[in-house]
Simulated scan of single mutants.
Amino acid sequence: MRLAVRHETHYRFDTPLAQGLQRLRLSPKENHGQSVRAWRMELTGARVEVVYDDHNANHVTLASILPGTTELVIACEGVVDTADRAGVVGRHNGRLPLWAFQCQSPLTRPGARLKALAAPLAAVGDDRLAQLHSLSQAVLGAVTYAPGHTDVGTSAEEALAAGRGVCQDHAHIFIGAARLLGFPARYVSGYLLIEGRTEQDAGHGWAEAHVDGLGWVGFDVSNGISPDARYVRVASGRDYAEAAPVTGITWGQTASSLSVSLAVEQQAVQQ
């Protein structure tokens, strides 16, 4: 499947900034089932300082905000070819060893609720892949998809207590529980083609767990499936904080507003 993506993030600042830095994980990477045909990023109000691959093998652009900026625009556009591999990404790469993905983070650290969710699955046979699918179903059953009740700082345990959340919350709960069950697990940020809808409010997030013999396997808890050809994989990390599309720090700011426009659509492939 050939997918075209247009993604713009627009910040408006009440007063001119003195300076700032933005870490941008907005460039898809090549992997099994995904080929990047074209991708470009344009910045207004900032300049690129360096481009590098981080410890998770994500493509990262470090940009400095120009002094006096009142509007910052990050615009990305590109075309990615994808294939349905039943969620299987394959072998591990990056600088972090697999065992690092078994360590909990503040966003995935289990409390009593998360431990209770994972406990019944510890005795689910010897089929490790089936165990993870059962976990995905359990997470979705425990937390209804409902925007507006959590934010980027909400932990897995807090989302479980609320019983409502979004894709980020589902992924963090899955990751925390999978680690309790002995799986290396990580967060993935990217894009999803939604049937009948081109314009979207935000990117998408899901989880991956490492299964012996298969490597990394994806689980989109919010949609109850493993990622297929409709998904564009952009960045991964031990939790959302390591895979967030945009993070940064500014000086001289009093207040700001943020707007995002995103479009994902299928393109015809010429034979």
Rank of each mutant, 00 (worst) to 15 (best):
D54T: 03
E30M: 12
R6K: 13
L43V: 03
L129C: 07
P110Q: 01
R23Y: 07
G213T: 10
N58I: 03
R164D: 00
S261Y: 09
A146S: 15
D151Q: 12
Q266A: 15
V89K: 06
L193W: 11
D220K: 04
T150G: 08
E199V: 08
Q271P: 15
G141T: 09
T254R: 14
V88K: 03
D127C: 12
L117Q: 01
V88R: 11
E49H: 10
L26M: 14
C103L: 14
A268Q: 06
V36F: 00
L258P: 11
E199I: 08
S257D: 11
A122S: 15
K115H: 14
R12M: 09
R23T: 03
Y187M: 08
R113P: 00
R197K: 14
C167Q: 00
G218T: 11
R91P: 00
T82F: 02
G203W: 00
Y11G: 02
N58E: 06
A18S: 10
G215W: 10
S35V: 10
I173K: 11
P97T: 04
R197C: 04
W99Q: 13
L262H: 03
R6F: 07
G94I: 10
A207T: 04
N58Y: 07
A38I: 05
A63Q: 05
V73S: 08
G190A: 06
S189C: 08
A185Y: 01
E157V: 06
A46W: 05
D220T: 10
Y240V: 12
A243H: 08
G190F: 01
K115C: 12
R91S: 08
G20Y: 09
Q200P: 01
R164K: 15
D81L: 03
P184C: 06
Y145L: 06
L24Q: 05
A119C: 03
E242W: 09
Q200W: 01
E158Q: 15
E42R: 13
R2F: 00
A185M: 05
L258D: 09
D151F: 12
N31Q: 10
P110A: 04
L107P: 00
N93S: 14
A255W: 12
G218M: 01
E42P: 00
T154C: 08
A122I: 13
A178G: 00
A161L: 15
S27H: 12
G190D: 03
A130S: 09
P67I: 08
T82M: 04
S35D: 11
R2I: 10
T44F: 14
L132D: 03
A243I: 06
L107G: 00
L160R: 07
H204L: 02
W216E: 05
D239Q: 09
V79R: 11
P147C: 11
P227Q: 04
A4Y: 14
Q104G: 05
T61P: 06
V188F: 03
G203T: 13
A146C: 14
Y145G: 02
R197V: 02
W251T: 11
G252Y: 02
T250S: 03
A4D: 10
Y191G: 06
R91L: 10
H7T: 14
G33K: 00
S134K: 09
L98C: 04
P147M: 04
P97L: 06
R85L: 13
G153V: 10
V211E: 01
T247K: 12
T198P: 02
V60R: 04
E71G: 05
Y187L: 06
V79A: 11
L117K: 07
G224R: 11
